[in-house]
Design a binder for these strands. Structure first.
Lengths: 157, 157
DNA sequence: GCTTGACCTTCCCACCATGGGAAACCCCAT
DNA sequence: ATGGGGTTTCCCATGGTGGGAAGGTCAAGC
């Protein structure tokens, strides 16, 4: 199986498969005499594992740990659980931050007439925040525009 | 006022002020004979505006639009409101995706004994998803490790 | 005046995960 | 043998942010 077939079968793009190999997330693939990477069902299995972990929002580093446990037949499920719950905590933290932003902004928008006049409480608040601390004090980064949802190189869509 | 002072006064790091200038988000600052950037209160005002918009999760491009409206005395508050509500919708969308991930993972974790035995439903699900579609089909990117919350160059902390 | 330390300048590099594209090569079917 | 589609490596871009080096500047204290 060539890399393109593995990509289609796993839902991980060929580009990313090479990247995962480069960064040591997955072991180097076998090669044909001509240098083509060759994949077996087992490799596709692993790629699918990775793909699903990404779908659950794990970072590549997180996946590295998950893969370690996956391959370790003597693993303790407690370790997996700990990893998973730590990730859930991160997700919930992020959700809280986004929710704070959204509700603040929504509140401001509700106060805005939304007509053809220039006065606008949203801009006023950005100019000089009210003492009510409507704008949260903490940074959490912009909304990383949802990276093109939907598998880009998935099984022939 | 030099760039360091403007940074402290606005909560935007000197690095980022230069970056915003480079990318045209803010106009080029005046310079001393020696080439030092010089800022007036008005510039700090604008930087604070930017800073607060970032705190609300706006992207730099979004801020570019906000700044345009801010500077336009003939703006329609409806345009500001539309921008704000569109951003709220983005935030809520992202929240939904993260919430899906978190709840899926939490459910799986609840089913995991979390002991010293190797069998673990979390890994099983990653290996081969149950037909219940526990793993969401869409990608939303990993959790971009919360970028160092707290103003890094804030007003003399 | 001279030194010292804090500041400023530009330029390059790194992160993370992903895609785009070029130049070259390979394989298979007609 | 030719053409089309696969593959290889390599470089570049994204977005926002920081780190750091090499060199210029300024102000305070001696």
């Amino acid at each position: 199986m060539n890399i393109g077939d593995a990509a289609r079968a796993s839902g991980v793009s060929a580009k990313m498969i090479r990247y995962y190999e480069d960064t040591g997330l997955i072991p180097p693939a076998a090669r044909t005499a001509a240098g083509y990477r060759v994949y077996a069902e087992q490799d596709v299995h692993m790629l699918r594992f990775i793909r699903r972990a990404r779908d659950l929002g794990f970072s590549v580093e997180g996946i590295r740990e998950l893969l370690g446990l996956w391959r370790d037949r003597d693993r303790h499920s407690a370790d997996v659980k700990r990893l998973a719950l730590a990730h859930v905590a991160e997700l919930r933290q992020k959700i809280r931050e986004l929710e704070d932003m959204a509700s603040t902004l929504e509140t401001l928008a509700e106060c805005c007439h939304g007509n053809d006049r220039p006065d606008c409480p949203i801009l006023s608040e950005l100019e000089a925040p009210g003492a009510d601390g409507a704008v949260p004090a903490k940074r959490a980064g912009a909304i990383k525009a949802l990276p093109a949802t939907g598998r880009r190189q998935g099984p022939r869509s």
